[in-house]
Measured scan of single mutants.
Amino acid sequence: LSCHYCHSLFSGKPEVLDWQDQVFQFCCRDCCEDFKRLR
């Protein structure tokens, strides 16, 4: 899998964000929080 925010590859459990009828996967909570802050 690749992170939607930083595009790094990861194999662990992703942080998942269901936002505006789309599902995004992130490598860590920090990337998820940064993505939400920018949107």
Rank of each mutant, 00 (worst) to 15 (best):
S11I: 03
S8H: 13
L1K: 09
G12S: 08
D30F: 04
C6P: 00
E33T: 06
Y5G: 13
D18S: 10
V23Y: 05
L17Q: 09
Q20L: 11
D30L: 09
C28D: 10
S2T: 08
C6S: 00
H7S: 14
V16M: 10
E33L: 05
H4D: 12
F35K: 02
C31T: 00
V16E: 07
S11T: 05
Q22D: 15
Q22A: 14
L17K: 03
D30V: 12
R29G: 09
R29V: 13
H7I: 11
F35L: 01
F10K: 02
D30A: 10
S2L: 11
C6Q: 00
Q22E: 15
S8Y: 13
Q25R: 11
R37V: 12
C32I: 06
L1F: 14
S2I: 15
H7E: 13
D21K: 11
C31M: 01
K13P: 10
D34F: 05
E15C: 09
G12F: 03
C31Y: 00
S2Q: 14
P14T: 03
R37C: 03
G12V: 04
H4E: 13
D21C: 04
Y5L: 11
C31F: 01
D21F: 06
E15S: 06
R37G: 08
D30S: 10
L1N: 14
P14V: 04
D18I: 08
C28Y: 02
L38P: 10
F10D: 01
H7N: 12
R39C: 14
E15F: 08
W19V: 13
K36D: 06
Q22P: 07
L9F: 07
L17G: 06
W19T: 15
S2H: 14
G12N: 05
E15R: 04
S8R: 15
G12C: 04
R29N: 13
K13R: 10
R37L: 11
C27Y: 01
L1W: 01
C28R: 11
C27N: 01
D18H: 07
P14D: 04
W19E: 13
R39D: 15
S11R: 03
H4M: 14
G12K: 08
D18C: 06
Q22T: 13
H7M: 06
K13H: 08
C6A: 00
L38K: 11
D21R: 07
L1R: 02
G12W: 04
P14E: 04
K13Q: 10
K36E: 09
C3N: 00
L17M: 10
S8M: 15
K13T: 07
H7V: 05
C3V: 00
F26H: 01
L17F: 07
C3K: 01
S8E: 13
E33C: 05
L38A: 07
L17T: 07
S8T: 14
Q22V: 15
H7K: 10
Q22F: 10
F26G: 02
C28N: 05
Q20Y: 04
P14A: 04
G12P: 04
C32D: 02
E15M: 13
D34L: 07
C3R: 00
V23C: 14
E33G: 05
Y5C: 09
L1M: 15
R29Q: 11
F24V: 12
F26P: 01
W19P: 13
L9K: 06
Y5N: 10
L9P: 12
P14S: 03
F24I: 11
L17H: 08
D34H: 07
L38V: 09
D18E: 07
L9T: 11
E33F: 06
W19I: 14
C27S: 00
S11P: 02
F10G: 03
H4R: 12
H4V: 10
C27A: 01
C27I: 01
C3T: 00
K13N: 05
S2P: 03
C6D: 00
C6R: 00
D30M: 15
K36Q: 10
H4G: 15
C31L: 00
S11M: 03
V23H: 12
R39Q: 15
D21Y: 03
S11E: 04
R37M: 06
C6L: 00
